[in-house]
């Protein structure tokens, strides 16, 4: 096992897949000469050249629409949205075209397409540049939505995504590129659509993903010092959603907290809580609590922004609340 950063993990996945399969190429804003706004594709342009590492104009519809077209005719493009917020400029392609084209034409078209997008708040970028709108995208059947929380998962899931024949939105978090973690040596993939228990515990189940995982693991450590053992289930993929490890864990703990960075209303937590009530109502010992972003557009001011984002102490408080 080697310990690498999230940035290195994603970079390695891209490079390994590009080396393995010549139909894989990258297109996006500043992915080439600049080396990626978050330095994920640093060195790629020199290694693979302009044909495989395409610096695009600032034109999100041309990027996503173009990647869809290239995928339909047999290539495996990895399109990059500099941030997921710019995905709204190409919303028609992401939610109204990519998820439909296979189904609507009776399976004739396939879209082996990955859209990598950087999401998340906490960097004082203001309301239009700081969103965690994952739930919106996960609403659409036909699109797969992956959002890893560890370097190991990021690498293995991205490799699977690139090999998949479906359109996949792969959401990374802007504040997590320096997160370090163990990854297996050599070749491996991780299947899309499988949740994973990242920490075992008997008292409360925390269901989360991506940034929420980082926060929840910290909360779990703090709680452990107080004798509370939480089990942390990482969704990793939001669609298709794998509830099995969640339900299994919940049947053991009978109490749950759902943690996400996005807004609470109509969010990932809303879905998870409903599913638990639908699938394991008899096991519920306490109302399930959602920890999420305050219902405001994110402000620039650092103190206000942090007040709006879910924090470790919000999670520990919620866990104690469900244990009451």
């Amino acid at each position: 096992m080697a310990k690498i950063t999230m940035r290195e993990a994603i970079s390695q996945a891209l490079m390994e897949e590009m080396d393995r399969d010549p139909s894989v190429f990258i297109m996006g804003e500043e992915v080439g000469v600049w080396g990626g706004t978050y330095a994920v594709t640093k060195g790629f342009y020199d290694k693979y050249g302009a044909m495989r590492v395409k610096d695009t104009p600032i034109a999100e519809n041309a990027i996503i629409g173009g990647a869809i077209g290239a995928a339909m005719v047999g290539q495996r493009p990895v399109a990059e949205l500099m941030t997921i917020n710019f995905g709204f400029s190409a919303m028609d392609y992401i939610v109204n075209q990519a998820p439909k084209l296979h189904y609507m034409f009776g399976g004739q078209f396939t879209l082996p397409l990955v859209i990598r997008a950087v999401g998340g708040g906490g960097r004082q970028l203001g309301a239009t540049h700081s969103q965690t709108p994952d739930a919106i995208f996960a609403h659409f059947p036909g699109l797969k939505v992956v959002s890893p929380g560890t370097p190991e998962d990021a690498k293995g899931l991205l490799k699977s995504a690139i090999r998949s024949n479906d359109p996949i939105l792969f959401i990374e978090h802007a504040t997590m590129y320096q997160v370090r973690g163990e990854v297996p040596e050599g070749e491996y993939t991780i299947p899309i659509g499988k949740s994973k228990v990242q920490r075992e515990g008997k008292d409360v189940t925390i269901v989360t993903y991506c940034k929420g995982l980082e926060l929840s693991m910290k909360a779990a450590e703090e709680l452990s010092k107080e004798g509370i053992e939480v089990e942390v289930v990482d969704l990793r993929t939001l669609r298709p959603l794998d509830m099995e490890p969640v339900i299994e864990s919940f049947k053991k703990t009978n109490r749950a907290v759902v943690v996400e960075e996005g807004w609470k209303s109509y969010g990932v937590g809303s879905e998870i809580v409903s599913r638990i009530y639908e699938e394991a109502f008899d096991y519920v010992d306490a109302p399930i609590i959602r920890v999420a972003q305050k219902e405001v557009p994110l402000p620039y001011n650092r103190t206000l922004e942090q007040a709006a984002l879910p924090q470790v102490h919000d999670i520990t408080a919620a866990v104690k609340e469900v244990l009451k």
Binding site: Q124, L125, G126, A127, P299, Y300, N301, R302, L304
Partner: peptide, 13 residues
Amino acid sequence: GKATGMSKGKGGS
């Protein structure tokens, strides 16, 4: 990011 900014510190640069 101060309250006396024209966007009350909520907009930034």
